[in-house]
Amino acid sequence: MVLEIVINLPIEPKEVPTLRELVGWDGRHSDYPILFERCNFWAGLRDDKNELIAFGYIAGMGLQHGYMEDIIIHPQHQRKGIGKALVTRLLEEAEHSGIEIVTLTHDKKHEAFYSNCGFARCSAGLWRKE
C-alpha cells in the first residue's frame, strides 16, 4: 500500500468515531463534524477499499503553537509505519503553516514512538473535568 497521507482528506462525520471505537476509545460522536471546523488541519489515509484507516489533527490558534491529537491507526494496519508517516505529514503541514511548536499528550507506553517522531519529553500539566 502506498502511504499517501492527505491533509484535510474529505471525511464523513461518522468515520472518525468509528475508527476511535476500533482502537478502544470513546467515539466522541458529538465532536464530528464540528472538529473539522475548529482544528487548523487534519490528515487521513484510506485503504484500497476506501476505508479510513488513519487520522490525526492539529488544533490551536493558528499562530506559533499547535496541539496534536487523536493519532489513530486502524488495528489491522498498526506497526506498518503508517503512524509515523501520519505524524510526519502533520508536522510538515504545521511547519508549512507557520506553527513552530507542537505539543501532545500520550500514554507512557507510546513514549518511544513519539520520541522516534521527533518529540522531546517535557514537563506539563493536565486538568481534567471530574
Rank of each mutant, 00 (worst) to 15 (best):
M1F: 10
M1S: 06
V2H: 12
V2N: 14
L3M: 15
L3G: 04
I5M: 15
I5S: 13
V6A: 02
N8I: 03
I11G: 00
I11L: 05
E12A: 10
E12L: 07
P13Q: 11
K14M: 02
L19H: 00
L19Q: 04
L22P: 00
G24Q: 08
W25R: 06
D31V: 06
I34H: 04
I34A: 08
F36G: 09
F36A: 14
E37M: 05
E37S: 13
R38C: 01
C39H: 10
C39G: 05
C39W: 11
N40A: 09
F41K: 02
G44H: 03
R46S: 05
R46N: 04
R46A: 06
D47P: 08
K49V: 08
F55S: 00
G56N: 03
G56Q: 05
Y57P: 03
L63W: 11
L63R: 12
Q64A: 15
Q64Y: 14
G66C: 07
G66R: 04
Y67G: 01
M68P: 04
M68R: 04
E69K: 11
D70H: 06
I71E: 03
I72L: 10
I73W: 01
H74F: 03
P75D: 07
Q76D: 12
H77M: 04
R79A: 03
R79P: 03
K80S: 08
G83H: 00
G83N: 01
K84R: 09
L86K: 12
V87Y: 00
T88L: 06
E92I: 14
E93R: 11
E93G: 05
E93L: 09
E95M: 10
H96L: 11
S97Y: 04
G98R: 10
I99D: 05
I99S: 07
E100F: 07
I101G: 02
T103W: 00
T103G: 04
T105Y: 12
K109L: 05
A112D: 07
F113A: 06
S115K: 13
F119C: 07
R121L: 07
R121V: 04
C122Q: 13
C122E: 13
C122Y: 07
S123T: 11
S123D: 15
A124Y: 10
L126Q: 12
W127V: 12
W127Q: 12
E130S: 12
E130K: 13
